[in-house]
Design a protein around this nucleic acid. Structure first.
Lengths: 246, 246
DNA sequence: GTAATAGTGTCTATAAGACAGTATCCG
DNA sequence: CGGATACTGTCTTATAGACACTATTAC
């Protein structure tokens, strides 16, 4: 009741046996674009609970490990990522019953990477592959384990939103890339068709977004100029996705 | 090494004594606008560590308590908030040494509320008051306890960004309010001056953002029309803050 | 009167949506 | 040839920034 009741609860925390056991994990929503579709890396669980169900990759946070470091370690373990991928914290999920075994608070991360050849089904899981998120949404495949449907949905929405005002779309591509390839990333992530001419004008009129290499690449028909990522990370004004009618 | 090494680590978690003790807390960045300044609610710590330092309000997450529920409970305890305040998860902070006593992972929340008369210095802390965030930034006052400077800075930036594309600014005001009062919220949060005429046009041209009551209020000089919050929560197009030069 | 504020109207620059049109290549 | 793609250019509309102007009130 006194002014340091707050402190007493902290002191209670100080005794390892005085507070309820909680595990802290990181879960990863790893997104990439494959064959024109936004895909998420999923792991098939080999044991209970949710045995046989697909789940986001993730794992325990080490005793003296930073949250970001744990996410980076898991990303490397699950994808064998060598190049630079984007990694950012997404949100935390801690419903008391989200894991039937014990109280688990999961700090979810969002990772964006260029098309990865091998899903690395070796290390930690029974199976691993990239699933188109559109298929998962349609209920065509069973729901994910735990609350991972929700986490993945939040991650996809974060990625969709960030394409509007950042240069993150370029992290889905290997350098160098063409303007049309960049446009197809936007189209895959947003699930819409964009006007090629207007998209091109918008991208090239944003200083420092992409840097022309001077090279060209033979595409399906014709030749397309090649670009690398520029220094600009924030888009002003934004490249807004088409709204579902006004 | 086998396909369920992942599972083994989960089973290890299942034994409460087999994983390192971690405490999960919620910390609140409670923002309000007082006297034209964006202010944050801070609590003066009455005990070690960081005794006497100002800190964000927060506390332990109950054994079977959801994260959001813990944040709502703490907000009610610390502010005595009766009316509707906005509350959303901000991010999680889990550097291994952020609390000298033990491993603590804090899930931070951002709360926005209308001007609150009494800081409620009674319940949990030695002292409590609203501090203008501009003063804290200038280093005019000592740094906050733990990593709360960082959390508060992240919360302020989140609030600033969300004013651009949501109707959240209205949660800083009691109804009914004038367009000028709403503008002063934007000016306080962003720390800039806005053009009154253009701001008015923008707000009134966004359908459903504010609803005229038909009443008027005597202001300093003259009469101003009164409005209440509308149903629109997302602003399209956004009300972008002035950028520090192009 | 002056100073400050609420509110209206207008001009201009910018940017986006729509679309015409050329050049190139594949089949 | 038709069809698809890379790329250029133009027209229209919507919006934001800047600013002129009136009305009202406090002092």
């Amino acid at each position: 009741m006194s002014a340091d009741a707050d402190e007493q609860s902290f002191l209670a925390d100080y005794d390892p046996r005085a507070f309820p056991p909680v595990a802290v994990t990181v879960d990863l929503a790893v997104l990439t674009v494959r064959d024109g579709q936004l895909c998420a890396l999923l792991i098939r669980r080999g044991a209970h609970p949710y045995r046989g169900r697909w789940a986001l990759p993730g794992g325990f946070v080490g005793a003296r490990e930073d949250l970001d470091a744990a996410a980076r370690r898991e990303l490397a373990e699950e994808t064998g990522l060598d190049g630079h991928a984007h990694l950012e914290q997404l949100a935390s999920y801690g419903a008391p019953d989200r894991d039937p075994r014990m109280r688990v608070v999961s700090v979810a991360y969002l990772a964006l990477a260029a098309n990865l050849p091998r899903p690395v089904a070796s290390t930690d899981a029974a199976d691993a592959r990239y699933w188109p998120v559109a298929d998962l949404r349609d209920g065509e495949h069973p729901a994910l384990a735990f609350d991972h449907d929700r986490i993945l949905a939040d991650g996809v929405e974060r990625a969709r939103a960030k394409l509007e005002y950042t240069s993150l779309a370029t992290t889905f591509l290997e350098e160098p890339f063409t303007i049309a390839e960049l446009r197809r990333v936007y189209e895959a992530v947003w699930g819409v068709e964009l006007h090629p001419a207007n998209f091109r004008r918008k991208v090239l009129s944003t200083p420092g977004l992409v840097v022309p290499t001077g090279e060209e690449r033979a595409t399906g028909r014709g030749w397309a100029e090649l670009y690398t990522r520029g220094a600009t990370t924030n888009l002003h004004p934004a490249l807004l996705r088409p709204r579902p009618a006004a």
